[in-house]
Design a protein around this nucleic acid. Structure first.
Lengths: 344, 344
DNA sequence: CTGTTAGCGCCTTCAT
DNA sequence: ATGAAGGCGCTAACAG
């Protein structure tokens, strides 16, 4: 059997309470006693049973998730994952609330962060917008010892504890290499469709994409970015116009959401031969990948992101270290051949 | 607060012991009493605290992993992951032993399974070889109520409880689409390099690859399969000969291990323009991907596989259901652009 | 068949 | 500064 607090107490010749004080480095122990206990801990190779500790503490973590409202499938999927985490909250000792804010509205987001602050949670997870008022609101949370994790889109200049999302520059580069190699010698420009340049993730994907195109496929021309606000209706309108304006388009990189509109525009225009790389696996994008309208899909697993955010918030709330390597979110690359069978 | 066994006992007017019997559907409770308790459970919305239950049980799961010996990096990585699981075993209430067997030797594997059987574990995880003596050995384990999970390579006809590995047909198809699209109109045949047709995962990858090549790139010729036994030295010899025999080779799909030898042969022959798709991210394949010798890498995360195998073995040992969707192992697709920074 | 009692490993008053 | 005692939610003898 592995050693317990009792063994340490016996070995060190002190009481359980003293061992506990040392273990949780609480005050009220003489240097000398503390040393004795620490020697016992080391010599017995003691490791604390975290589950038993949690049971005894009966602690529960109050967390708030701030998500953008809007009906694109990716954000709905993210919401679903948070709700599943809420369903698990009994087992995970969490109490999770969701706050919705209008998309791409920095002031609204800052207000939501303030509201979250008022509720006094142990931690906040937020899909960030890269704006000063948001950075400020995050700092105020952190100043009060509330842990903050950015989700999906980061806020690098801020004091957030952690980012639960993919490396968006790498994602953009991956899209660039795929579209460049898939197109090979086929002529024609490539268009880029984004949601909004206000959010960091979209800006970074664009940056990665452009740098690869420039480094490795320099002769391919890139059209100016189109911003569709992640709104399927607007996206469809913009893409329809784009296809009309440029009959010779060879490829499209859609780095935001609202792909429902992209697919509709392509199919109505009968432009199946355009090479399309898009982000996020949803029921729409999945269908388009299978039908051949979309050639490849880059994806971030919303479930992983939410679970990682929760683990990190709990750890930070307890002042525990985070294994960054374990919390890294992978960029999934899906072709029609390796689509998981599941829902999503 | 969420309800506890005490609340149920009070609500149903019975003792804790009776509640516990119903909860773990143990015998010795009258139908009527059982009903009362079940009603109380339902009406209070009780969910059992698994961590407290485990604490009280003090149970620990004895597990055995059977891995092929040999010095290819993938299997070494797998071993490392098992050792990390062993390091966590205190916290996870597991006692894990590793048994090594010569690679691609069905009889040796069957013997190892028998040895594992003798040790009386709660579960066994095994990198399977598709052979009757192995299937038999697995059945004997299962007949004694020992849980069996196949790892990396499956044994579908057998009575194993679960397979912790990727969909290898999908992996082969993905490789086919990538190589087909990357090559475009470039002329020349494609070669396939496997470890051994004795193992299911290699056979399935080949099957998926061939079917996509046939369906979507029918004009491309595929050379006969080369078997390198996952041995870097043998692989290098075989590939060197292959390159000499076929100066016009356009692409190589390496669906097994031993890629160190593949890379060496390609680099010595100065054949960097050959399009290469390989499996498994190791320090060698990573370097080759970055240098451009390898064009894309398909990967299964050994850490995920090991952790999943352990979760499943524990669940099966307790007769609990497994959420297949949650245990699905993804096929990672790596280009030089989206390589994780970590070790591996 | 059912209930009582004593833990599992840890934390937390409350005394001393 | 230290210790004794009780409890977190559940399970496991052992009695009745």
């Amino acid at each position: 059997m592995r050693p317990t607090v009792h063994d340490i107490a016996a070995e060190a010749g002190v009481s359980l309470a003293t061992v506990d004080r040392v273990l949780n480095n609480r005050p009220g122990v003489r240097e000398l006693t503390r040393d004795k206990v620490e020697r016992a801990i080391a010599s017995l190779g003691y490791v604390r049973d975290v589950t038993a500790a949690n049971l005894a503490k009966g602690r529960s973590y109050k967390l708030i998730f701030i998500l953008p409202a809007g009906d694109n499938s990716f954000m709905l999927g993210l919401e679903t994952e948070v709700r599943e985490a809420i369903a698990r909250s009994a087992a995970e000792r969490t109490e999770i609330d969701i706050l919705f804010v209008p998309a791409f509205d920095p002031q609204a987001l800052a207000n939501a962060l303030a509201e979250a602050h008022r509720r006094g949670p142990a931690g906040v997870a937020v899909v960030a917008i890269d704006a000063p008022e948001v950075t400020d609101a995050v700092r105020r949370l952190r100043d009060d010892g509330i842990a903050v994790v950015t989700l999906v889109s980061d806020l690098p200049g801020s004091s957030r504890d952690h980012f639960a999302g993919i490396d968006n520059i790498a994602a953009g580069r991956t899209a660039g290499t795929l579209i460049g190699r898939f197109l090979g010698d086929r002529a024609g420009p490539v268009a880029v469709l984004a949601g909004s340049m206000l959010v960091r993730d979209h800006r970074e994907r664009l940056e990665g994409f452009r740098s690869v195109m420039c480094e490795s496929f320099g002769s391919r021309s890139i059209l100016p970015v189109i911003e569709g606000q992640d709104d399927p209706v607007l996206v469809e309108k913009l893409v329809a116009a784009l296809l009309e304006r440029h009959p010779d388009i060879a490829g499209i990189y859609s780095l935001g959401a609202g792909n429902r509109g992209l697919v509709a525009a392509l199919e109505k225009a009968g432009r199946a031969q355009v090479c399309v790389i898009a982000h996020e696996l949803t029921s729409y994008s999945r269908a388009a990948l299978l039908s051949g309208t979309i050639d490849a899909l880059l994806n971030q697993d919303a479930g992983h992101e939410v679970r990682s955010a929760i683990r990190v918030l709990k750890a930070k709330a307890d002042g525990l270290p985070v294994l960054e390597a374990q919390e890294r979110i992978r960029i999934d690359v899906f072709l029609k051949d390796n689509l998981p069978n599941g829902q999503a």
